[in-house]
Every structure is written in structure tokens, then in C-alpha cells.
């Protein structure tokens, strides 16, 4: 097929069913950084070797998606506007910090990270932006690399992250793109917002409303620390706990996302 037809097909296939052919081009603003391959040792370590799990190289947006960028997305895809998005895909606080369907307002500075977005909405945006959400392992790999900024001291990183987790939420978030840069040049991985990952529901917890104890149930009581790879890694515990508490339609005032791409087409981690 011609490249033009292919482009049309891509847009139609990725923007969701509500506005086929809207034809909006994704925002070019964000830079993608190559995150080099590495190994991740998940906090749930059962069945995983001490050396962790190999994660291939991938590309990750240098900062989270902003309000202004998400506004362009909903402008091009009316079905994802605040009043129209399907209730099975977003809860009632979807984009609640915006003033209107197409108005950001005082609580949503254009350059601040977009929050109050569901996993489904974030996934649709990522597809529209010709990418995807990072996997948990990809995100954790990218977020563990601060040797340059913090002198190769994982304890310093842990403390820094805890400081954010332990502070109260700000009503209006600061702009994205100014946080500490990782060794790969990715910013704001810690200290700005939580971020959606593609497989957030891989945390096999007792989190579901009427659930029972699962293999990761230890994440929710003290006894389970015995199952964890590093019980003193409070920051990782908290990220996994948060992911475990989520459902795909949930939107949170502190939860945003960023876009990932495969390092080369067809060579992904998924």
C-alpha cells in the first residue's frame, strides 16, 4: 500500500472508535530517550533469580504527557472528552482538574503533567502518539538509573523518592520536564506524579474488592516482607501497592503517564 494509505490506516486504527479519520497528528513536542538494556529485580521475587529479569532497550518519553498535549488528543478524539468518554473506561473524576471538555483552567497548567486519566485513556493517547505505555519492568528499569545524579547510591534514591511519597499532594502540579534526569536522560520519574504502566494489573494482589489472598498478598501485611526481594525498598513497595490498588477506569489526582516506544519496530519487550 502507499505510505499515505498506510498513514491513514494507522491513524484510524489507533485513535479509537469514536472519531475515525480525525487525522490529528500527535504532538511532536516530547523527546524520546533510548533506555539501555538492563536487568530488573522486581519487589515480588518469587521464582525470579537474584540477578533479576533481563529487559531489552526501549525508548521512553523524556517527561510525562502534559495537559496541553492531552488537550490536543481530546480535541482530535471527541470520544475521549471529559463528558463523552465511556463510563466503562473512565471513572467520574476523569480530567476533573480541567475547567471543561476543551478548557484547561487554573488547576491544569499547560506544561504540568496530565493527571486524572484512566489506563484506558492513557493507552488510547499512547496509541494516538504512535507509541504505547511502558511495561512495569521497563518503567522500573528506567527509574532505577540515577547513578550520575546521585553518585551510584541506591539508598539516596530511595530516600529522595520517599520524601515525595511522604509529602502532601499539591493542588496544582508544577511543570513537567524539570525533575532530576536519569542516566538515560529521562526526567520526572520520581517526585512529580505516579505513572501508569501497561501491565499495572500484573500485581497479583488481594486488591480487588472482594478478593482473597494472592501470591503478592504479602505486600499488604508485615509477614509478607519475607517474600519481597528487598524489604527495605519502601519506594518500590509503594509503587507496587499503588498499582495493585488500581482498576483500568480509575483516575487519580497524582497519577499520569508517559509514552514508550520499542527501540526498533518489532523489537519490543512485550
Amino acid at each position: 500500500m502507499t505510505s499515505g494509505v498506510r498513514a491513514l490506516l494507522v491513524v484510524a486504527a489507533l485513535t479509537g472508535g469514536f472519531a475515525p479519520g480525525a487525522g490529528a497528528q500527535p504532538a511532536p513536542g516530547v523527546e524520546f530517550r533510548l533506555v539501555a538494556a538492563g536487568r530488573v529485580r522486581p519487589i515480588f521475587a518469587a521464582g525470579v533469580a537474584d540477578t533479576g529479569i533481563a529487559v531489552g532497550a526501549f525508548r521512553l518519553a523524556a517527561r510525562p504527557v502534559t495537559n496541553a498535549e492531552f488537550l490536543r488528543f481530546v480535541a482530535a478524539n471527541p470520544a475521549w472528552r471529559r463528558t463523552r468518554a465511556p463510563r466503562v473506561a473512565v471513572d467520574s473524576s476523569y480530567l476533573r482538574h480541567w475547567s471543561g471538555d476543551l478548557t484547561l483552567g487554573p488547576n491544569a497548567p499547560p506544561a504540568a503533567p496530565v493527571v486524572n486519566v484512566s489506563w484506558f485513556a492513557a493507552s488510547a493517547y499512547a496509541a494516538w502518539a504512535q507509541g504505547r505505555l511502558p511495561t512495569t519492568l521497563e518503567w522500573e528499569l528506567a527509574a532505577s538509573r540515577f547513578h550520575r545524579a546521585l553518585g551510584n547510591d541506591p539508598e539516596r534514591l530511595n530516600l529522595r523518592v520517599l520524601e515525595w511519597y511522604g509529602s502532601a499532594t499539591r493542588a496544582v502540579l508544577p511543570d513537567a520536564g524539570h525533575g532530576m534526569a536519569s542516566d538515560d536522560g529521562v526526567r520526572d520519574l520520581h517526585g512529580l506524579v505516579w505513572e501508569w504502566v501497561e501491565d499495572f494489573n500484573a500485581v497479583v494482589t488481594s486488591g480487588e474488592s472482594r478478593g482473597d489472598s494472592g501470591p503478592d498478598a504479602g505486600l499488604f501485611c508485615a509477614g509478607g516482607a519475607a517474600l519481597a526481594a528487598d524489604p527495605s525498598n519502601y519506594a518500590a513497595f509503594m509503587r507496587y501497592a499503588l498499582r495493585g490498588s488500581l482498576r483500568g477506569s480509575y483516575t487519580l489526582a497524582t497519577l499520569g503517564f508517559r509514552v514508550a516506544r520499542d527501540a526498533e519496530p518489532g523489537k519490543g519487550n512485550r
Binding site: A12, G16, G17, F18, P20
Partner: peptide, 12 residues
């Protein structure tokens, strides 16, 4: 694909 409304969400 277009007629089917594309994925992943079906038109209301």
C-alpha cells in the same frame, strides 16, 4: 477497519 469504527473502543 474504518467501518468497524477502529479499535479499541466501539462507537456508542
Amino acid at each position: 477497519v474504518l467501518a468497524a469504527g477502529a479499535m479499541p473502543w466501539r462507537a456508542a
